[in-house]
Amino acid sequence: MIISLVIHGAPGTTQGAQTALTFCRAALAADHRIYRVFFYEDGVHNANALSVWPQDEYDLNAAWATLVREHELDAVVCVASALRRGVLNAEEASRYEKTGVSVDPAFDISGLGQWVDACLNSDRVVSFGV
């Protein structure tokens, strides 16, 4: 089955982000295809490479970046959500004259069109952290 995920929840504050990661791993292990993982609203915090987790806590940001890289997942961060929350790549940081880049390069920043595209090309789109 072709599956896409929409993640609304921030890491650490809602369970959704963690559940989505576990779901994603399980789907891949069961030979399903992940068409896209779309991070929306507070979900964009999962793509922040500047997050620092206490040593005795699970670093969900690192876990997502690792999963995306290992499986070459198409991971997209909603641009409107990301800009508001300071999740910026070099291009956006420069465009808005901000001092830092925060998004992990494993993630692309793009628009809701990518979410619609995921709906059109997936058998299931599963939302997490609503």
Binding site: A80, G111, L112, G113, W115, V116, D117, C119, L120
Partner: peptide, 11 residues
């Protein structure tokens, strides 16, 4: 915003 985006793609 999701509704309007989907509408642009004529779903």
């Amino acid at each position: 915003d999701m509704v309007l985006s989907a509408a642009v793609f004529e779903q």
